[in-house]
């Protein structure tokens, strides 16, 4: 938990376009900063273009999308397709996590489509934060896409 990433990694943290929730983003920023990372937090209700612009400007080690309003499987899918259409962002590490649908524990059904559409990892809320921590440990290794990181099982 207290492992510090060296050299300092840079992250862009963001919600998706229709999601106004903020506390999940505040939590992720603190979690990453505690591990020595530098975080640009774009906040809630972020249009796709703004996320793409920021990633192009700051070239982060990873883009972390967090959403809990249940529209993640819609807004998140549209976003990742947009990102992967941009040739200069094809190699960007992008992960998504939270409550991705409105089906509670069954939201895991959305994970595969999101991963196959270009996310490097997908974390459903029930999977716990441990899977995200594991992902952070893999940042120095080359990306192996598609990967389906969420097990949907609480550790």
């Amino acid at each position: 938990m207290s492992q510090v990433m060296l050299p300092a990694k840079r992250f862009v943290v963001s919600s998706v376009s229709s999601d106004a929730h903020m506390w999940n983003l505040v939590f992720l920023q603190l979690l990453l900063e505690e591990q020595g990372a530098h975080v640009t937090n774009l906040g809630a209700c972020v249009p796709d273009d703004l996320i793409i612009e920021e990633c192009r400007r700051s070239r982060p080690d990873a883009l972390v999308i967090s959403t809990v309003n249940g529209h993640g499987h819609l807004d998140g899918l549209r976003l990742i397709r947009r990102i992967r259409e941009e040739p200069d962002l094809a190699d960007l590490r992008v992960v998504i996590g939270g409550k991705l649908g409105v089906r509670g524990a069954e939201n895991i059904v959305f994970a595969e489509e999101l991963a196959l559409s270009g996310y490097d990892a997908v974390f459903e809320a029930d999977g716990g934060i441990e899977n995200f921590q594991e992902f952070l440990g893999t940042l120095d290794a080359p990306a192996e896409r598609p990967a389906l990181a969420s097990s949907g099982v609480a550790a």
């Binding site: 938990m1 809320a125 029930d126 716990g128 934060i129 441990e130 609480a154």
Partner: peptide
């Protein structure tokens, strides 16, 4: 069990 569990 709750959704977002923190290890601690």
């Amino acid at each position: 069990l709750r959704g977002l569990q923190y290890p601690g």
